[in-house]
């Protein structure tokens, strides 16, 4: 159903002629020799809109994951090296001990910060247990006498 203004309806009712009947044969006769024999599977994939969309989506996903891993949480930190609760407790204990030992507040805060950094990277820096046992990065242990 075509609706429109009176002038549009008037145009439609006047109509336009179509192509002459013999044009079909001429078109087919001219076009068939130009047909390509067929498409390879590689061409079908390369020229397929769906394949291109899928490739684009995959690329976007890879970049999105990569970018997610690099989002900073604060100065010099990322998802990968965010301190865990144990590291936080250790650092707070170190800061408290420094204050009780009579060190100035800013020095105690600096020590606390250093302790936090050290506790956040145990695999690279080794680990010190409460009873004084030191674990080296290669897995060996030292006794603190």
């Amino acid at each position: 159903m075509m609706l429109g203004t009176p002038i549009e309806n008037r145009l439609r009712s006047a109509g336009l002629t179509g192509p002459p009947p013999d044009l079909r044969e001429r078109v087919i006769a001219c076009s068939v020799p130009r047909l390509r024999p067929g498409t390879t599977w590689a061409e079908q994939i390369w020229f397929s809109g769906r394949w291109r969309l899928a490739a684009l989506a995959l690329l976007f996903t890879v970049f999105a994951f990569d970018a997610l891993d690099r989002i900073p949480l604060g100065p010099g930190s990322s998802f990968a090296d965010r301190p865990g609760p144990v590291a936080m407790e250790t650092a707070q204990a170190a800061g408290e001990a420094a204050r009780q030992a009579g060190l100035p507040g800013d020095v105690a805060a600096l020590l606390e910060r250093q302790a936090l950094l050290a506790a956040s990277q145990p695999a690279q820096n080794g680990r010190v247990s409460i009873d004084g046992q030191v674990t080296l990065p290669d897995g060996g242990e030292l006794e603190n006498r």
Binding site: S31, L35, R36, T39, Q44, F47, G49
Partner: peptide
């Protein structure tokens, strides 16, 4: 138009 269309080959897939 039809002659060119026939010659387009795999480009028509997109």
């Amino acid at each position: 138009t039809f002659v060119k269309l026939a010659a387009r080959g795999p480009l028509l897939l997109g």
